[in-house]
Each structure stands twice: as C-alpha cells, then as structure tokens.
C-alpha cells in the first residue's frame, strides 16, 4: 500500500537530483532547469501532505509556488539573455567578474 512516506521519498530524491544539477552542471540554463526540479519536489511534498492531512491548504500553497516559479523563470531567462548579449556566454565558470 502506497502511503505518505513513499511520496515524500520521491520528493526527496527529486530534490536531491535538482541540487546535484545546481552543484555540478556549468550551463546556466541547465542550472535553471534543476532549480525547477527542486521547486517541483517541494510541490509534490506539499500535495502529499495536503492529501494525507485532509486539508486543502497545501494545494493552495502549491498554486502560489507555481505562479511565483513562472514569474521567476521569465525574469531569470530575460536576465540570461541580457547577460549573453554582454558576455557571449552562459557558462557559470566563465562569469566570474565579481570573484576576488
């Protein structure tokens, strides 16, 4: 029988994969996709808690997270386009102008 714990384990694994992508990948776009993976892992955990606590509040929170994530992706990608115009690269190890 599938219970709350199974959903939470899937959520943890998804979050870990996203974190691994943020830590290891060097392409800024793929780092962004990994951030989306982490947000979706949080959404899955919230929806699972919402069902097993029989309260709808978790789903409302997921709704807000999806909205904020969409706004964040739009602004982030616009920043990336502006950055690419300036520096002709989206690799994080070449964007080190602020490094000491």
């Amino acid at each position: 029988m599938i219970g709350l714990n199974h959903y939470l384990v899937i959520s943890v694994l998804l979050f870990s994969l996203g974190l691994l992508g943020v830590l290891l990948r060097r392409n800024l776009l793929i780092v962004y996709m990994s951030l989306e993976l982490m947000l979706n892992a949080a959404n899955l955990a919230l929806a699972a808690f919402s069902k097993y606590n029989q309260q709808l509040d978790g789903q409302i929170l997921v709704f807000f997270i999806v909205t904020v994530a969409a706004a964040e992706v739009a602004v982030g990608l616009a920043l990336m386009v502006a950055l690419f115009r300036l520096r002709q690269t989206v690799r994080v190890d070449e964007l080190n102008a602020m490094k000491l």
Binding site: M33, K51, Q59, V66, L77, M80
Partner: peptide, 25 residues
C-alpha cells in the same frame, strides 16, 4: 494524490508556458 486541478496546472503552466520560454531562449 487527488489534486486534479494541480495536475492540469502542472501541464498547462510548466509543460506549456515555462518550457516554451526555455526552448525560446
């Protein structure tokens, strides 16, 4: 999980809008 509205939102917003933005960029 019984969250049918969220499932629809997930497809519409993520697989639709966010992914189009990513591919566009």
């Amino acid at each position: 999980l019984g969250a049918f509205f969220l499932a629809a939102i997930q497809i519409l917003v993520y697989a639709g809008a966010v992914m189009v933005l990513f591919l566009f960029v």
